[in-house]
């Protein structure tokens, strides 16, 4: 199978001096979105020995490093979509750019995304890209296996405590549940191979048939006005009585809150 996995370079430190939607990037504080890793791992197992897995990302130059992480984990090729004209994009403008890049990559059996990102967590980009490409979508996928000679994909997805079995005609788009695959360690040999035998190509807006008015900040219908740390109020309460009474009280309270 030929699979593209769309990945994101996320920031690991609380951003400072944020103006609007643009978060300054320091390469030391950026990593491959941890929720993209199960998607990459699932893609590598679906692609098999003969297949090809292409990691695609849109972001500033610092996002190259997330693509190298994907190459070190086993992806065969990395493509970074990077252009000042793409900066400040909301999720729709991002999806438009990714959809154009995916079309440029040519025939793909599958496009995969992590179901969420660790830094903004909208979950929009995968479904929006599927819509723009007019491809069927399975979100929050836990398992996937080709069927009927590779014309269809059997998918198990999980949401709200239920599991759903689906069959999708290929090509299709999957967003992958973060528990689809256990965390994997990347060895030194993979890193060495990524930096000596593989490359990250950089594409600019000029490489894509896109109207500049539909991407970047101008193409973004939403605008982030501010970002502040969410204040969480916590209350600590001590239960009284003997241990059994405390246990009864605790279970009752959890039941009242719908947690048991």
């Amino acid at each position: 199978m030929r699979i593209a996995v769309c990945v994101k370079s996320v920031v690991t430190k609380e951003p400072k001096n944020v103006k609007g939607s643009r978060v300054p990037r320091n390469p030391e504080d950026c990593v491959l979105n941890p929720f993209d890793r199960p998607a990459l791992s699932l893609a590598l197992s679906l692609a098999g020995e003969e297949g090809e897995v292409i990691a695609l990302s849109m972001g500033p130059p610092a996002a190259r490093e997330a693509l190298y992480e994907a190459l070190a984990a086993g992806a065969h090729r990395g493509v970074l979509l990077s252009d000042p004209a793409l900066a400040g994009a909301d999720t729709l403008a991002t999806s438009r750019a990714l959809a154009a890049a995916l079309q440029k990559l040519g025939l793909l059996n599958l496009v995969m995304f992590g179901a969420r990102s660790s830094d903004s967590d909208t979950g929009h980009v995968g479904p929006q890209t599927a819509e723009l490409l007019d491809l069927p979508l399975a979100s929050w996928s836990l398992e996937a296996a080709p069927e009927e000679g590779g014309a269809f994909l059997a998918v198990v997805r999980e949401a709200d405590g239920f599991r759903e079995a689906l069959s999708l005609p290929l090509p299709a788009v999957l967003t992958v549940h973060h528990q689809a695959r256990p965390p994997e360690d990347t060895g030194l040999a993979g890193i060495q191979e990524a930096f000596t035998q593989k490359t990250v190509e950089t594409w600019t807006l000029a490489d894509l048939p896109l109207d500049p008015a539909l991407v970047g900040e101008p193409g973004s219908p939403t605008t982030v006005l501010s970002m502040t740390r969410a204040e969480k109020s916590r209350k600590c309460e001590f239960l009284e009585g003997d241990p059994q009474a405390q246990a009864v009280e605790l279970t009752q309270r959890l039941k009242d809150k719908g947690l048991l």
Partner: peptide, 24 residues
């Protein structure tokens, strides 16, 4: 900030740190 570090140096540091945090 380490201005001398290359992309590869950072990739090595990230991967080993993650391994160590998980297993060591």
């Amino acid at each position: 900030m380490d201005v001398f570090a290359t992309e590869k140096n950072r990739a090595v540091r990230r991967s080993v740190r993650e391994f160590c945090d998980r297993h060591i």
